[in-house]
Write a protein that binds this DNA or RNA. Structure first.
Lengths: 108, 108
DNA sequence: ATTTTATATAACCGAACAGTTATGTAAAAA
DNA sequence: TTTTTACATAACTGTTCGGTTATATAAAAT
């Protein structure tokens, strides 16, 4: 099961995910958006891949990355539940709202 | 500002916080609840202290730890907002619900 | 056919982490 | 006063992480 803390625990990875939320991106595009070397970015992408939060596909010489919102949702479930329990019932009911399936599956 | 990812990113620390949610605990009590050495537990407590998620107080030879729910709430705010933005509007409205101040301040 | 482009991979670095053992210290109990 | 108890601290280990440079490779463009 994906480790959301690991995946989201780094600011660069969060920015990458925000980029991918706007649409699929080439590795090159991602690299150009940061002041980090290509292998450095690739490591972040590998961690997101390991955690299943993003997917990779090939197109000629390009690597295309996309975000897996459904998996991210499932993955954050446990975390939201835990925080909800700590922060008490208000957040829990809030979490229940999420769990009731009110999400639309953007990734289809 | 507290790094929630760091604080909550470890299972032992999450268990410690769950314990403290039930009430203040002595370091001894916490140590006894885990199969980890006393210095090992102390390191986790120090990280939670660094992030401001828990507080420490002295009582004779005892160290008493308590959870700072208010700070945890403020700290998770950003994280919840970010995840909300990724997981789209349903979660955002959910997050707004939290932000509207619907939390009661258990720690007063 | 050669060069450029997009990416992969290896090797390295310093810092942080999770854990340990060993030892010191201060409060409480005997 | 001696011993026990609760905790602090230092030093060490192995692993992961975020970053780098250097180099290889495969596709595309020239």
């Amino acid at each position: 099961m994906p480790n959301v803390y690991r995946a989201l625990g780094d600011a660069t990875r969060r920015q990458i995910l925000s980029m991918l939320k706007q649409g699929c991106k080439t590795q090159k595009e991602i690299v150009e958006a940061f002041d980090i070397s290509q292998p450095g970015i690739k490591k972040h992408l590998n961690i997101l891949l390991e955690e299943g939060i993003i997917s990779e596909s090939l197109n000629g010489k390009y690597r295309i990355y996309s975000i897996n919102l459904n998996i991210l949702q499932i993955a954050s479930h446990e975390m939201l539940q835990y925080i909800g329990e700590l922060l008490d019932d208000q957040l829990v009911s809030l979490k229940n709202y999420v769990e009731k399936g009110e999400f639309r599956d953007e990734e289809e």
